[in-house]
């Protein structure tokens, strides 16, 4: 087991090295990606800032709490964009072009090989900025020492849940000819999760908590960090991670069985 982990880790290091070389050979794109992310962060935080110029609270949350939520989601977005996002687009292209055959032949687990192959170094470069926003608004929201210690772990759990759900969604591409639409659906799913769960009405909230647990990604950890007595949703989140993990592997296996190579 340990040997296998070491093997996968060494492969992942190679993935990062090759992705970095590719990214650095297109320097203009590299710089533009950094700028694009900064625009995105500023517009997300700016929108909430401007709203709070006219009101004092949204639901039961005040400005500092909501700003912390947004910055936490930006940090998730940064890691997601940097480490996995590109692979979902690549997957849909590989499936259509028949390139997937060659990837499936490699002696690695197909999910690892497909969804962790490409890394976007330019986005990782903005990790510092996203972390700064999270710390800044975390201090403003008055996080406890315990919350600061738990923040990295909860961030990791949130990303795991998000990526697992996205892989489940992307598996649908095996049955579709044009997979780009699935990627747009994935992005819309993220957009719903960028706001706290209390923003949505009762049934919508239930749907996106229990059936498609996109609202657990941000709301469960942030609520726990802000109000540690609200641990119920965190338990739901852990449950969702276990269930989506099971579904993901099963569904992926089923998808692979249905895969008819485009090149053969």
């Amino acid at each position: 087991m340990l040997k296998q982990i070491r093997h996968y880790f060494s492969v992942y290091i190679k993935f990062i090295a090759t992705s970095s070389s590719v990214a650095l050979s297109f320097r203009t794109s590299f710089v533009l990606l950094v700028i694009m992310d900064i625009f995105f962060y500023l517009s997300s935080l700016g929108a909430v800032e401007f709203i709070f110029g006219h009101i004092s609270h949204i639901g039961s949350w005040h400005k500092s709490e909501l700003m912390f939520f947004i910055s936490f989601m930006l940090l998730i977005d940064n890691l997601h964009m940097g480490l996995v996002s590109q692979n979902f687009w690549q997957f849909s292209f590989d499936l259509r072009s028949g390139m997937l055959d060659f990837i499936l032949l490699r002696p690695l687990h197909s999910i690892f090989n497909i969804f962790f192959r490409n890394v976007r170094p330019s986005t990782i470069l903005n990790f510092g900025l996203a972390t700064y926003f999270c710390i800044h608004y975390g201090i403003a929201a008055g996080l406890t020492t315990m919350s600061w210690c738990l923040l990295p772990l909860l961030l990791l759990l949130a990303i795991i849940l998000l990526v697992q759900m996205e892989i489940i969604l992307c598996t649908l591409t095996f049955w579709l000819i044009q997979g780009n639409g699935i990627n747009f659906l994935r992005m819309q799913m993220q957009q719903i999760g960028r706001w706290p769960d209390f923003v949505y009405e009762f049934w919508t909230r239930k749907f996106f908590t229990f059936f498609l647990p996109i609202l657990l990604i941000g709301s469960a950890p942030v609520k726990f960090l802000l109000f540690p007595q609200m641990g119920k949703e965190l338990i739901l989140m852990l449950g969702a991670i276990i269930i989506t993990n099971f579904i993901m592997f099963r569904f992926w296996k089923w998808g692979l069985k249905n895969y008819h190579s485009a090149s053969s």
Binding site: N180, G181, L185, Q188, Q191, I192, W195, V199, Y200, E201
Partner: peptide, 24 residues
């Protein structure tokens, strides 16, 4: 694909804003 790529994003964008302003 057309629905998910062209109409879907606008629809979800509207839905999120509708929910947000309703709460406000």
């Amino acid at each position: 694909n057309f629905f998910l790529q062209v109409i879907g994003p606008g629809l979800v964008f509207f839905f999120v804003k509708y929910s947000l302003w309703n709460t406000i």
